[in-house]
Design a protein around this nucleic acid. Structure first.
Lengths: 126, 126
DNA sequence: AAGCTAATGATAATAGATTATCATTAAGTG
DNA sequence: CACTTAATGATAATCTATTATCATTAGCTT
């Protein structure tokens, strides 16, 4: 992954525009706007390389789907829309997780996952 | 699922003894203690039926693995050991999740996932 | 105990996500 | 511009979890 291809630029641009974590299919569709011939294999190859390069980080969601996002400075969590399946960042994290850890256990990291309707799906449903 | 077979009893007994969420392979191994001929197909069939009967609930973990547990009365969360891959209940939930929900979003439920070493793996590592 | 048939167990089949293959394309260098 | 080769794109292959198939076993009712 050394050459700065149009495909790779289109993939990064998709994340910059979306401003939220994206799944593989979402990246494919968005990046095809700039680069119509893009195939899934290229998406997977670039996502993997971008994660190695720390240009992206992975967000594993229940159900086995992996999302990717541009690494942010702040600790944050995720909101998963149960209607449109999109994932959004939740900026605040006012949790005292240390209290939750059972005795004798060692905490490495934590995830808070919120599920519900995003703003767009909330409006549609009402 | 009407007959009270030895297999089904062995599966439920595995959950009662484990006192924590179990994955399919764990259920298989534990239940085979009571019923050695048990096959995976029977595990899947019974787990599905037990969830329909509300004797078990599912716990979806990142990575796509589904765990199952006996439904408890209290709201709780889960700790996943990154060493032995076992999942444990975390009884307390002192979180004010409502503060985290973005404007316009509708919250349905939330999950708090803790990752690290369980007590047994913490001791082994030290 | 006999009979009906739900449930089982071994295994093939399926499904979805990800990876490998390989001929072709195009970045970057001189 | 020409060349080298990394990267691409189409698709086959793989992997893992789960489900379907079907002959056999064993609950349960009488």
């Amino acid at each position: 992954m050394e050459r700065n291809t149009q495909q790779r630029q289109a993939i990064l641009k998709a994340f910059e525009r979306a401003e939220r974590p994206l799944g593989v299919q979402e990246v494919l569709e968005l990046a095809q706007g700039d680069c119509p011939s893009l195939g899934v294999a290229t998406i997977y190859r670039n996502l993997k390389a971008l994660v190695v390069d720390k240009k992206l980080i992975t967000v594993d969601m229940p159900g086995g789907l992996t999302f990717y996002e541009i690494p942010g400075i702040h600790h944050h969590h995720h909101f998963s829309c149960t209607n449109c399946q999109k994932v959004f960042d939740v900026e605040k994290c006012g949790i005292n997780v240390k209290n939750l850890v059972p005795n004798g256990f060692t905490l490495q990291r934590h995830e808070v996952l919120l599920f519900g309707f995003c703003d767009s799906c909330t409006q549609t449903a009402s």
